[in-house]
Every structure is written in structure tokens, then in C-alpha cells.
């Protein structure tokens, strides 16, 4: 091994690495977003209060049973196996020939959905009962309570967990190489197939993975901070009816230091 060999791999094959990294990032972003939406929907459905009787009770029970099976199956099996079953299974059983890229996003999304469904359900359950009661007491029904009081708090609370899923997805999309998705791992393997510099090529790949995960972590932390709003509030003197603008807040905070 030498620095030269490294440099050669990078100089010669950087477009391939870059394409792989770009696809990895693309699949992870799209799948994390779609998966989170699936998870949010399922988590919300699974916490709908079950009425004492009637058709709705039966319907909710059936839907909940189906969702439980979905969550358990996708959490209980490795994604690499799911990828094989779904990609080749859909071809053999239904004659559906999926684009590898589409198949990749599909698989990672439903996998993320299964995990975030549980995260969301936990997030909803952990919201203080008093929040629900206060919302009900001013006349909100379950839908409005969820929409305007509970879900915004749940989203804020589960953001770190979703960020974690995102980072996991960046790493785990590598299993999609088994269905020939041109993500970073697949591209690296291709480079090795050409020049046999296994160590050098995969070192480059690890650096790229690390750059992606570290950047994503930083960005998410920034977003969390932003969602919490400023640490101080402005006491509005007199009886002015005015909502402070961000500029005022900045001035105010400066004045305090």
C-alpha cells in the first residue's frame, strides 16, 4: 500500500465514487422522508382510541392487526433478505421488473416505516395526558387534538430518533448492492473489480460514508435547535399588540449580553 495507490484510485475513479455517494444519499434522504411519513401515519392510526362498540371498532381492530404484522415482519427480518425477496419475488410471482433504484427506495422506505411507526407510537404515548385533556376541554376532537397539539410535539421529540434512522439508512443502503443498485458500496465493488485495489477503494468509501453521516448529524442538530426557538422571550412593554419579529429577538438577546 502506498499513498500513490490511493491517489491513483481517487484520481482515476472519483466519478464512480461520487455517483455512488450521490445515490446513497439520495436513497437515504428519500427513504427516510417516506418512511417517516409511513411511520407517522401508522403510529397515529395505532393510537386511535377504540370505540366501545360498532362497525368502527371492528375496522380499527382489523387495521391494527395488519399494521402489527407489517411492523413485526419488517423489524424482525434483515433488510438484505427483504431486498432479495421483494426484488426477485415481485419479478417471479407477479412479473414486475422493478428498476433497482426504485426497488431500493421502496425497500428502505417500508423498512424505515416499520421502525418509525414504533418510535411515533412511543412518542404519542409519552405525551402527557394533561395535553390531551386540555385539548378536549376546549372542545377539540381526537383529530384536532392530534393535529394541533400532540403531533407537533411528537415530531419535535422524535426528531433525534429520526435522525438516527437517517444515519442508519446511509450505512444500510449498502445492502442494496445485492440487487445491483449503484450506491456507494456497489460502485466501490465495481472499482475493485477493475483494479483489484480492495483496501484503497474501500478506505475511500469509508471516508465518504463518514463525511455523509457526520454532515447529516450536524445538520439535524441545527434543525432541532431551530425548532426549539430562542431561549429568551421578549417582554412586550405597555399594551402594544405586537408579535416580536426575529430581528427584535436578536437585538434583545444582544442587549442582555
Amino acid at each position: 500500500m502506498s499513498w500513490e495507490a490511493f491517489a491513483n484510485v481517487v484520481i482515476k475513479y472519483w466519478p464512480m465514487f461520487l455517483r455512488g455517494a450521490r445515490n446513497t444519499l439520495y436513497i437515504s434522504i428519500v427513504s427516510t422522508i417516506i418512511g417517516s411519513l409511513i411511520g407517522l401515519l401508522i403510529g397515529v392510526v395505532r393510537t386511535i382510541p377504540i370505540p366501545e362498540r360498532g362497525f368502527k371498532k371492528v375496522l380499527i381492530k382489523i387495521v391494527n392487526a395488519i399494521l402489527t404484522v407489517y411492523v413485526e415482519v419488517f423489524r424482525g427480518t434483515p433488510m438484505i433478505v427483504q431486498a432479495m425477496v421483494i426484488f426477485y419475488g415481485s419479478l417471479m410471482a407477479f412479473g414486475i421488473d422493478m428498476e433497482p433504484m426504485f426497488a431500493g427506495i421502496f425497500i428502505v422506505s417500508i423498512n424505515t416505516g416499520a421502525y418509525t411507526a414504533e418510535i411515533v407510537r412511543g412518542g404519542i404515548i409519552s405525551i402527557d395526558k394533561g395535553q390531551f385533556e386540555a385539548a378536549h376541554a376546549i372542545g377539540m376532537n381526537h383529530r384536532k387534538t392530534m393535529l394541533y397539539v400532540v403531533i407537533p410535539q411528537v415530531i419535535r421529540n422524535i426528531l433525534p430518533a429520526i435522525g438516527n434512522e437517517f444515519v442508519i439508512n446511509i450505512k444500510d443502503t449498502s445492502v442494496l448492492n445485492v440487487i445491483s443498485v449503484t450506491e456507494l458500496f456497489f460502485q466501490t465493488k465495481t472499482v475493485v473489480g477493475i483494479n483489484y485495489k480492495t483496501f484503497e477503494a474501500f478506505t475511500v468509501a469509508s471516508i465518504l460514508y463518514l463525511i455523509m453521516t457526520l454532515t447529516v448529524t450536524r445538520i439535524l442538530r441545527f434543525i432541532e435547535k431551530r425548532m426549539d426557538g430562542p431561549d429568551n422571550y421578549v417582554v412586550i412593554p405597555g399594551n402594544q399588540m405586537q408579535v416580536a419579529r426575529p430581528e427584535d429577538l436578536i437585538k434583545h438577546n444582544k442587549g442582555r449580553q
Binding site: 386540555a134 376546549i138 394541533y148 410535539q153
Partner: peptide
């Protein structure tokens, strides 16, 4: 319920 205002011991303001 909109006709009754409720004030709780634990405030329960929307966070």
C-alpha cells in the same frame, strides 16, 4: 365542552 372553561391543577398549557 366549548361552553365550559376548564382550569387544571397542572396547568396543561400546550407545550
Amino acid at each position: 365542552r366549548t361552553k365550559l372553561g376548564m382550569v387544571f391543577q397542572q396547568f396543561n398549557l400546550f407545550n
